[in-house]
Simulated assay, not measured.
Amino acid sequence: MNTIKDLITSIENNIIDIRRTLHRNPELSNEEHHTSSLVKEKLSEFGIEWQDGFAQHGVLGIIKGDLPGGTVALRADMDALPIQETNDHEWVSENPGKMHACGHDAHTAMLLGAGYALQNMKKEISGTVLLIFQPAEENSPHGGSKPMMDDGVFDEYTPDVIYGQHVWPSLPVGQVGIRDREMMGASDRFKVTIRGKGGHASMPHDGNDALIITNQVISSLQTIVSRSVNPLHSAVVTIGKIEGGYGYNVIPDQVTFEGTVRTFNPDIKQLVKKRFHTIIEQTADAFEGTAEVEYLDGYPATINTPEWAQQARSTAKNLLGEDASPSLDPALAGEDFSRYLLQYPGAFIWLGTQIEDSENQKPLHDPGFKLNEKALPIGSQYLVQVALDTLLTLSKKEEK
């Protein structure tokens, strides 16, 4: 561990500089040209073999140890969000309307730092470590993980285990969040258009108010969770946007609303989806209106493999102390890493990045989001250690 720490310490300023460079120059999903170029430049500088051509801007770094063994993959996402940053630090976004408000700049920098250390430890590595730099994580429901796999990112080297790490502002620096199974939720989205008949506000009997129909539909949708889902399971139906109407004295003929459905259990997801369609169609029909539903199945739930979640937790405690991996609840936010876990065993991990002024910590996806850069070398060191520990476990299993 001292060797790993020394290697990460020697490159710590570089990790921070990479993160700040990426933060100044955020690129949205499927636009990560400069980010991808920087990744390839750094991999080459560190002497790490790489391949590209996956999901447009995806990059695969390959570190083959001098000793035989299994294959472990480490993934970082690279894209930013369409958010106007409100911070005033020196490395604030220079691209209007774009911001690394979810920490993907840190993910990329930490994985590059981990790659540097692993490359310098090749003689001691039993197996292969893959560094996955993935675009378009924020592009739900399409994402970048499936296109990368479709483009053959694992055709030559197939991971026995895969890990993803995400900054987590509610956890203090030095803590790591790991659950044995559910980590993140399935993230479906929808857009519904309710149509009635327009008219003059003073003569409602001549029209069919689409706002009234929409009101009934939205109220009824809230009964899905409260009356159709077992209280011991988790589900959320949220309406985030409503558009409709022309003026104070006009009965609208059309209203559109958008929102999201979040679940963990696939059976609950299907139950909510079925009830969602039934309620909308029947409620609109009852009020003599019509409904057009666009329902997009988003990322599946992120479900860790218990064996490798426990491995990741053991690494965290050995590296950071017995209190480094507290018990915590899952989150219903969506994550494209889930699609890797449908194909390969592994675990998704939250890295504590809470700022010292914790009362003013902004959440992920907030225009004022900040992270504590003291966590960056910890994240790099952890990625190295969990990769090595996992390769050791794979070797022991192979010997049996």
Rank of each mutant, 00 (worst) to 15 (best):
T3L: 15
I4P: 00
I11W: 02
R24D: 09
L28M: 09
E32Y: 07
E32K: 00
H34A: 13
V39R: 04
E41A: 14
L60W: 03
I63L: 06
G70P: 02
V72Y: 03
D79Y: 04
T86D: 10
N95P: 03
A101N: 02
D105P: 00
L111R: 00
Y116R: 04
K123W: 12
S126K: 13
L130P: 00
A136F: 01
A136V: 07
E138D: 12
N139L: 10
G144Q: 05
S145C: 14
M149P: 07
D151R: 06
D151W: 09
D155I: 11
Y157Q: 12
Q165I: 04
G174W: 07
G174P: 02
D180E: 15
D180P: 09
S187Q: 08
F190A: 03
T193M: 11
K197Y: 13
G198A: 13
H200A: 11
H200M: 09
S202H: 13
V217E: 08
S220I: 10
I224E: 07
V225P: 00
S226L: 11
S226P: 12
R227C: 10
S228A: 13
T238M: 06
T238R: 06
I239M: 07
N249P: 04
D253I: 01
T256M: 15
T256D: 03
E258C: 12
V261Y: 00
D267A: 12
E281S: 10
Q282D: 12
T290V: 10
E292R: 11
T302G: 09
I303N: 02
N304P: 08
E307M: 10
Q310H: 09
K317H: 11
N318R: 09
P326Q: 05
G334Y: 05
E335Q: 09
L341W: 01
Q343F: 12
L351A: 11
G352H: 00
I355G: 01
N360L: 09
N372C: 07
Y382C: 02
D389L: 08
L391P: 03
L392G: 12
L392D: 15
L392Q: 14
S395K: 15
